[in-house]
């Protein structure tokens, strides 16, 4: 699905530069579930932004399905996001003025669908996350776990190839966390999705097929799942 070679991303802030990514090399297979751990400020979010085409590398190449994301035009990369990539955010990022179903429907806006098809897909996505009876609720009327379910429905409704999740359970209690991870695991398996998930939580990371560690802008694999040490308050 992804092939990253020598990927760097340098931020310039004032006079000094920060190497958020200092040379990442990784191949992420189709249908793989990759967890990324690591302390705050070591480049995890930056890596997800690059994988999702929200940002471009300073150097190196990111092949997505064989196409170089860094060389696409803005229109092409927007199209990739619209059709192939689903984002899940730690803070859910639902639009507070819109009911759950409209929040999900917004993900279909850039696609060429007619109304009936669009509504059917929204209904299916809400059903898949168990929120059919909450379709008309505003985000503020939903619990954190329910909001993240809407977030997952919004990411899945377009039937993407990849899910990118940045601390998806970071704002949830343990019981809700386990429910959300169970749901994600089931959906990813059923639909054959590739999942890249950043998490501080070793319990969550342990569910993945592979765990990478971000350290100083590099992605390291040492084979064995890492437990403890990285937990954040």
């Amino acid at each position: 699905m992804y092939k990253l070679t020598g990927v760097t991303r340098t931020y310039r802030k004032g006079g000094k530069t920060v190497d958020a990514l200092a040379g990442v090399d990784v191949v992420i297979g189709d249908r793989e579930w990759l967890a990324i751990q690591g302390p705050t400020g070591h480049g995890k979010t930056t890596l997800l932004q690059l994988l999702g085409g929200l940002d471009r590398p300073t150097s190196g190449t990111i092949l997505f399905d064989g196409k170089n994301l860094g060389e696409m035009t803005e229109a092409e990369i927007t199209r990739v996001r619209a059709t192939s990539i689903g984002f899940i955010f730690q803070t859910f990022n639902l639009i507070p003025t819109l009911p759950a179903a409209v929040n999900v429907e917004l993900a279909l806006a850039p696609l060429r669908l007619d109304a009936a098809e669009r509504r059917a897909q929204v209904a299916r996505a809400l059903d898949a996350v168990g929120l059919t009876d909450r379709a008309g609720h505003l985000p503020a009327e939903l619990s954190g776990g329910q909001q993240q379910r809407v977030g997952i429905a919004r990411a899945l409704v377009k039937d993407p190839a990849v899910l990118l999740a940045d601390e998806p359970t970071g704002n949830l209690d343990e019981t809700t966390r386990d429910e959300i991870i169970d749901l994600l695991a089931q959906l990813v398996r059923d639909r054959g999705l590739t999942l890249v998930m950043v998490t501080h939580d070793s319990t969550v990371a342990a569910r993945a097929e592979r765990i990478g560690q971000m350290r100083d802008g590099r992605l390291l694999f040492d084979g064995a799942p890492v437990t403890g040490g990285d937990r954040q308050p």
């Binding site: 929200l54 990739v80 996001r81 619209a82 990022n93 639009i95 993900a107 806006a109 850039p110």
Partner: peptide, 11 residues
């Protein structure tokens, strides 16, 4: 909100 829309693929 607008950042999220861009992440969703809104031009």
């Amino acid at each position: 909100e607008f950042g999220t829309l861009k992440a969703l693929g809104w031009p």
